[in-house]
Write a protein that binds this DNA or RNA. Structure first.
Lengths: 275, 275
DNA sequence: TAGTGGTCTAGACCACCGT
DNA sequence: CGGTGGTCTAGACCACTAA
């Protein structure tokens, strides 16, 4: 990162210094991006430890404090998990801590939620009993409809995979998921493969297809169940359903999943915390 | 915070050291709590600057770095806003930056949202045109129903204020809000007062009643419009509505608002980002 | 015991802001 | 210009974990 004893200059050795590009980022942000590149390239895989702070400081010729600040941001973005005395690990959807991060639907009874939620971020972790069983209705490959192509940043007509599945809670159909994935990333994906997998879908994607979902944006609407979906969810036609439309992204903000979840919210609700 | 030259001891001068209480927090966390107390007590009011980092460091006999880390956490929790070269300011619902923080309903057309959202937190700030006009239907005082009392941590039967209002977008009724507030905190609140106020409701609460909403938890459901609400919202009875139930809290996690918003989501959606 | 992340300090310099 | 937050460093010590 720097070559000689540096007199505290904040921008020594900046990438692209002096060029027309965007304003230059501080050192710790450059380090952060280098680390992200390491994660993206698979240099360090989910569940594994990244090098220690001192080692990274030596590698990049930077103080430990600077590396620390870089890692702090990665931890805040849930790309990495710190464990005192052990090291810093690449986040994985296989771990219990993180696997409920993208699952906001909860059973109503949960005494937690609105009631307590004394600790800002911690309350969400208590969501345990959420054992919904998945049943795949179909999994087929087709050409992307234009609106799916747009969401996934594909050319219209490119190959995509469509998974339709039901999530059941206590034997009751609760969520109908329609999941669109880019065909190129998910070659061998099949209904059997999904059904055989025990655990979160994102863990399957991460382990078997090397695609880690990093963040997502959701739009929620209340809609009336059409005939087909009402039937599938075993509710009356016209019943109110919560539609959760999600676009998930991996490193470099590349969209890799479009998901529409149609949720029966008689016994469940979507939980969110604002701050 | 400490008395003499301290040899790097991490827990010198801890509050309650040696007692049975919870495990002791690091220095910067104690400082953070002191600052929160200052905010809570009104020592520094919304919009005002808090003392500079060096001044606080001197006051608490701590290094600037420790104060900095404390303030970092307050900034992360949106209690405070840093402005380089100017100072650190108490967050206020009167400011444009923060006033859309608790408003997740957006018009569908928004080209942003799911489509781009290139920067995690930044995308949300673009929500500008959200100019919905408020019309108060009623504002009355009554005894808290048990379930409202529970949410607001009041004794059942204590005085509460109920505000019912309509939010209109482009002249169309879009949200029906039922807002419950503890009577004790909101003495002079009336329909006229709310109607006369231009700007976010939370800005009114903050400025006129000294109650700042810090964070909130929401539960969302899709429900069918009953006769009364359908009429108010000018939709067909049985139409799907997005019910957003929110409990807002102020300092010390005290609940001070229970709000139920019934949203027509034909032209709008609830937006959320996961990470 | 050795290695890791976590805390705290002290001091330097920078970028930005208002006067 | 002086003051503020922002970056970076170097070094000390702590708490925790695993061997």
């Amino acid at each position: 990162m720097n070559d000689a004893p540096r007199p505290g200059r904040a921008d020594a050795g900046r990438t692209g210094a002096g060029e027309a590009g965007p304003t230059f980022a501080p050192l710790y942000r450059q380090i952060r991006e280098l680390l992200v590149r390491g994660l993206q390239s698979g240099e360090w895989k989910p569940g594994e430890a990244i090098p220690s702070e001192v080692e990274l400081a030596a590698r990049y010729r930077v103080s430990q404090g600077t590396v620390r600040k870089a890692i702090d941001e990665l931890a805040a973005a849930n790309l990495v998990v710190r464990r005192q005395g052990r090291g810093t690990f690449v986040a994985s959807h296989r771990e219990v801590r993180t696997q409920f991060r993208f699952l906001r639907l909860r059973p109503d009874d949960t005494a937690a939620d609105v009631a307590d939620a004394a600790q800002p971020g911690v309350a969400s972790e208590s969501g345990q009993g959420m054992v919904m069983t998945s049943r795949v209705l179909e999994c087929r490959r087709l050409r992307a409809p234009s609106e799916v192509a747009r969401a996934l940043a594909l050319r219209s007509g490119e190959a995509v995979v469509l998974i339709r599945r039901i999530l059941e809670a206590d034997g009751r159909p609760t969520v109908l998921d329609e999941i669109w994935l880019p065909g190129s990333r998910f070659r061998g994906l099949s209904a059997e493969r999904v059904d055989a997998w025990h655990g979160p879908l994102y863990a399957l994607f991460e382990t078997e297809f090397g695609t880690r979902m990093i963040r997502a944006a959701e739009r929620l609407k209340a809609i009336a169940a059409d005939r087909a979906r009402a039937r599938t969810l075993q509710v009356a036609e016209g019943s109110p359903l919560l539609l959760v439309e999600r676009v998930s992204r991996t490193y470099a903000d590349q969209p890799v999943e479009l998901r529409r979840g149609y949720c029966v919210t008689d016994r469940h609700h979507y939980y969110n915390e604002l701050s």
